[in-house]
């Protein structure tokens, strides 16, 4: 098991089930996602069945179960973006990447997350890719945006943010 997860669990000695969510959050912050290994380890630490830990974790949108890609994609579905058509943008992103929200592309390049509001409503609809904001995105812009990141990855460019 990851030594980072061991460290986190050691920060919660004698923890009981009410510490479950803080622990899940700490592990996700450290690892970027909740691996099966982490879920099992957390369950053992809290004396909770893995099914319970997984059940709680899947209840909340904030937890992901696949590793973060090299470029983490956040599609804003806040009110302003929604009004400006972000549902179609999300569709286009899911189609282009071939994964659903919460997933990571098989090449590990992109991971997709839906967020409630990025706080850039003036730029709606907005998506963030690896920390770069893309404003006023239309579905037809989506393939071009991701192509440029694939290009960057090929050139060995550094991760943004």
């Amino acid at each position: 098991m990851s030594p980072l997860v061991v460290d986190i669990l050691e920060r919660f000695p004698g923890a009981r089930r009410d510490s479950l969510i803080p622990i899940l959050q700490a592990v996700q912050e450290q690892e970027g996602f909740l691996s099966q290994e982490s879920v099992l380890a957390i369950g053992r630490h809290l004396d909770l069945p893995a099914s319970k830990v997984y059940g709680v974790a899947t209840f909340y949108n904030q937890f992901r179960f696949t590793p973060i890609g090299r470029f983490h994609v956040q599609v804003c579905r806040g009110t302003a973006c929604h009004v400006k058509g972000s549902a179609n943008v999300l569709d286009a992103v899911e189609r282009d990447l071939g994964v659903k929200a919460g997933g990571t592309t098989r090449d590990g390049l992109f991971s997709l997350e839906v967020v409630a509001c990025i706080g850039a409503c003036g730029l709606a609809p907005v998506i963030a890719v690896g920390g770069d904001f893309h404003a006023g995105v239309a579905p037809r812009d989506v393939p071009g945006i991701f192509a440029s990141y694939r290009e960057r990855a090929k050139e060995g460019g550094s991760d943004a943010a």
Binding site: P49, S51, K52, Y54, G55, T58, F59
Partner: peptide, 10 residues
């Protein structure tokens, strides 16, 4: 006392 299954997602 097994808890093999639980509700997942929501």
């Amino acid at each position: 006392g097994v808890a093999a299954i639980d509700f997942i997602r929501r």
